Computed example of a mutant assay.
Amino acid sequence: MQHYTRVLTQRFPHAKFIVIDEVAGAAEALDGGALEGADVLRLYGETPNTWRGLCEHLKVAPPIAPYPSVRYFGQRRYRSASVDELTTRPAKQLRHDQSPWIVEPRASWKGIRASAFNQMEASFSSRVIFEDNLADIQPARWLLRNDTFPGNLGLFRPANVIPQLSGGLSLTVIKEPLGVRNLSAAAVSSRSNFLFGRFEVALQATNVPGLVTGFFLHRESPRQEIDVEITGNRPDRLLVNVFYNPGSEGAKFDYGYRGTPVSIPLGFDASKTLHRFAIEWDPCFVRWFVDGELVHCRVTWGPTPIPHLPMTLHVNTWPTRSHELAGRLALRALPASAIVRRISVDSFNADTRPQLASVPEDI
């Protein structure tokens, strides 16, 4: 520690250093005086959580957001890529948002790999595990949405979520005048928030251009999101995406239009039959699976930090305004439906009161 600290002070003689430790005096013992004479701010676990000390040190105005208070998972060790992170599917990076929280693409940068947090379960009061075949909608678990968002040409309506005789639900997009929209769509959202875990759906997407079938986790204030999407103009490809904004609960950072999307070939047409799509979300990585096969993996800063706050789970089908995303809407092909047969969740109770997340915009 002393050696590396001394190298930093020599290489960056005018740098401002911020040292964080849970116990006063512990960091000084580790750096062995190597920071003596440097411009240093020391923050300790018992230090009041305010912006004042940090902003005075950096000579910047305090932000409008409250000082962040997030769950601490302990230090994680850097590691090399493991075999279970290697994928055989080529991924095509699409146009990303520009943000301080998105690393600009470069061939040599793959993100920061860290060891998974093995003691996570001890940090939470309870675990949430269920598998729902959606034979009937449980009102305590699911909400049928009745709203919309700017990028959606349709209005979500509960009547468009239709139970199927063979099991599961049909999520239907219909052409009908509704005042605020001339199309109706379908969306189901969880009433509970989830933090980390595995989320899987068995679904059959629609192949109508202009429609999007989505399975994703989402929150706002700050906005964070992890997506599985299949567009009607390319049902043979999978779109995976992450939106990230910093802060703790209530921080008004809700930026992002495109996110950080990547397109992955499926090797089949997802509109022809049911397939399983899964998201594994950990403090160190996000992994996407199709029919049990790992198809994509992201680690910290590859290219965003990993979302770290509770999110609600959603499945929907909707008509997008964006021709770039899903092609021009084929109105004559409506009505059109996606089929959802089963949703399973293995996650943690984040000790937050369940809340209804607002509907995200399209990328």
Rank of each mutant, 00 (worst) to 15 (best):
L8W: 01
R11W: 09
R11V: 04
E22M: 03
G25I: 04
A34S: 14
G37V: 06
D39A: 02
R42W: 00
L43I: 07
Y44C: 11
G45C: 07
T47H: 04
N49A: 10
T50D: 15
R52D: 15
E56S: 05
P63A: 09
Y67M: 05
Y72V: 05
S80A: 15
R89F: 02
L94F: 00
R95G: 09
H96P: 15
Q98S: 15
R106F: 06
S125M: 07
I129K: 08
F130P: 12
L134M: 10
R141S: 07
N146I: 03
D147I: 05
F156Q: 14
P158A: 08
I162P: 14
E176I: 02
A185F: 02
A185K: 00
A186G: 14
A187D: 14
S192P: 00
E200S: 15
A205P: 08
N207Q: 12
T213G: 02
F215K: 02
R219D: 11
T231D: 09
V240E: 13
V240M: 11
N241E: 08
N241Y: 00
V242R: 07
A251N: 03
Y257K: 09
R258V: 12
L266M: 04
F268Y: 04
D269A: 06
D269Y: 04
A270N: 08
R276F: 00
C284H: 12
C284A: 15
D291C: 01
V295P: 10
C297S: 12
R298G: 06
V299G: 08
L309G: 09
M311D: 11
L313G: 14
T317P: 08
R321S: 13
H323Q: 11
A326M: 05
S337K: 03
I339F: 10
F348C: 08
R353Y: 07
Q355E: 15
A357S: 14
D362Y: 14
